[in-house]
């Protein structure tokens, strides 16, 4: 009993803010007497998600898949370019300044440009998620390749290490925690960017479900899509943060 009470108290101390927002939302809808076509109540939204999960699942799957594949491709490209830059100071000198500029470009605001370039379909959504995850991976991996355990570079030199062995046994493992930071930073952003892209031009996914149901005036479903999308991006962040923590324990 006391344990349950303690648990409830911990929950309240952690989530009072989120619960407060939900409460304000519910009260707002009830007191303003708003038409449910404008703003549905949170209870109606939750009810729709819980009673008809089948309407959401294919879209959840689609968004998750696109965000995940995009993240993997972007991270892989980021690592590859970082390693190439590490191997060649010349390439590093040429690539780093443009990468810094592109990194600060608001990618999400560029979605229409990419849509015109690649077409109104999943390729654009995928391209956005790849771009979103590429730059952090590249920047963090490159700095990680140089962030070595104290003295280890000298030890490898004296042991007569080849550059390839040095990369494989020292620089790459050293970069793992940094890379995981990049993944933590990109994971939720990939989901959010995929949603925006689906919203603008998708044919599937939660962003698309959101627009389509809104135009059909099915507001509970539309807000449900937004709610599920929020849960999805929070989950992506939490998973990536767990992964990062595990990596820090294991590699540092």
């Amino acid at each position: 009993m006391t344990a349950a009470l303690g648990g409830a108290r911990t929950f309240a101390s952690r989530y009072w803010g989120v619960l407060g927002i939900l409460a304000i939302w519910q009260v707002y809808v009830s007191t303003q007497n708003l038409n449910s076509i404008v703003v549905p109540s949170p209870t109606a939204v939750f009810a729709d998600v819980l009673t008809e999960p089948g309407a959401y699942l294919p879209h959840v799957w689609s968004t998750t898949w696109v965000a995940f594949v995009g993240l993997c491709v972007g991270v892989t490209l980021g690592i590859a370019v970082a390693v190439l830059s590490w191997l060649s100071p010349l390439l590093s000198g040429i690539v780093t300044p443009p990468a810094m500029v592109f990194r600060s470009v608001p990618v999400v605001a560029m979605i229409p440009v990419i849509a015109r370039l690649l077409g109104y379909d999943i390729r654009t959504v995928l391209a956005i998620t790849v771009i979103i995850s590429f730059f952090p991976s590249f920047v963090f991996t490159l700095s990680g390749l140089r962030d070595l355990p104290a003295g280890s570079a000298d030890v490898f030199s004296v042991l007569g290490s080849s550059r390839l062995t040095y990369l494989r046994r020292l620089a790459l493992p050293s970069a793992v925690p940094n890379l995981l930071v990049a993944i933590r930073l990109s994971a939720a952003n990939c989901v959010l960017a995929a949603l925006v892209a689906e919203f603008l031009m998708g044919t599937q996914g939660l962003g698309y479900l959101f627009v389509r149901t809104r135009s059909e005036m099915d507001m509970a479903r539309s807000w449900g899509a937004a709610l599920v999308a929020t849960v999805l991006s929070v989950s992506a962040f939490v998973l990536a943060a767990r992964l990062e923590q595990w990596g820090r324990e294991r590699w540092r």
Binding site: P149, A150, G151, S152, D154, V155, V158, L159, R169, L170, P173, V176, R250, W251, R252
Partner: peptide, 12 residues
């Protein structure tokens, strides 16, 4: 063979 004050062991 070399050993430094920083043990320089690979943490992973």
């Amino acid at each position: 063979g070399v050993a430094f004050q920083d043990h320089a062991l690979l943490p992973w």
